[in-house]
Amino acid sequence: MNDLSPASSPAGGIRAGASTLLEQAQTLGAIRVAVVHPCDETSLGAVLEARAAGLVDPLLVAPRERIEAVARQAGFDLDGIAIEHVPHSHAAAERAAALAASGRVEALMKGSLHTDELMSAVLAREAGLRTARRVSHCYLMQTPAYPRPFIITDAAINIAPTLEEKADIVCNAIDLARIIGVDTPRVAILAAVETVNPRMQATLDAAALCKMADRRQIEGGVLDGPLAFDNAVSADAARIKGISSEVAGRADVLVVPDLESGNMLAKQLEYLGGAASAGIVMGARVPVILTSRADPGETRVASCAVAVLVANRYRAVKP
Rank of each mutant, 00 (worst) to 15 (best):
A101G: 12
E165I: 13
G75F: 07
S8F: 08
D230E: 13
A100M: 10
I81M: 07
A307E: 01
R32F: 05
A207K: 13
D40P: 06
A235M: 15
V255N: 02
A307V: 03
D252M: 02
S277V: 13
D77Y: 12
E219C: 14
Q142S: 15
I180P: 05
M141D: 01
A18I: 05
A173P: 05
R199L: 08
D258Y: 10
H37W: 07
A206C: 09
V286N: 07
E41G: 03
A62L: 02
E49L: 12
P144L: 08
A307I: 03
E298G: 01
S120L: 11
A235D: 12
R315T: 01
A156Y: 04
A25T: 10
I152F: 06
A71W: 10
D252V: 00
D57Y: 06
D168A: 08
P87I: 01
D77W: 13
K110M: 02
G45P: 04
E219Q: 15
I83Y: 03
A121Q: 01
R199D: 10
L59G: 03
E94V: 14
G75W: 05
L204Q: 15
V253Q: 03
Q142V: 02
A160I: 11
A97H: 08
A107L: 05
G45C: 04
A208Q: 15
A46S: 14
T131N: 13
V86K: 04
C171D: 09
L269A: 15
L48I: 11
P144K: 11
L123K: 11
L113G: 00
V170L: 04
G29V: 02
R15L: 14
Y314A: 04
D214I: 11
S112P: 03
Q73A: 15
A74Y: 00
E165N: 12
A97L: 09
A71G: 08
A96V: 03
E94A: 15
A266S: 15
A305S: 10
R72Q: 15
R104N: 09
E270T: 15
V317Y: 11
Q24V: 08
E298R: 15
G29Y: 07
G181N: 10
S245L: 04
A7W: 02
A145Q: 14
E270Q: 15
G220N: 00
A25P: 08
D3M: 12
D3Y: 13
L227A: 09
I152C: 05
T143I: 12
A228P: 06
E260V: 12
G181R: 02
E194F: 00
G297I: 12
D154R: 04
Q268A: 14
Q142C: 12
E65V: 14
N197H: 03
N197V: 09
F229W: 13
R250K: 15
I240W: 02
R134T: 10
A98F: 04
I180Q: 05
L227F: 07
I159V: 14
G80E: 09
E126P: 01
P226S: 01
L78T: 09
H88Y: 07
I81E: 06
A62C: 01
I169W: 00
D175V: 02
A188F: 00
Y314L: 11
P198H: 06
C304D: 03
S261E: 10
C304R: 07
L209F: 04
K267W: 10
R315P: 06
R133L: 14
E194K: 01
S136F: 07
G279P: 07
S292N: 11
F150Q: 00
L44A: 03
E65A: 15
R130Y: 11
V105M: 06
A107F: 04
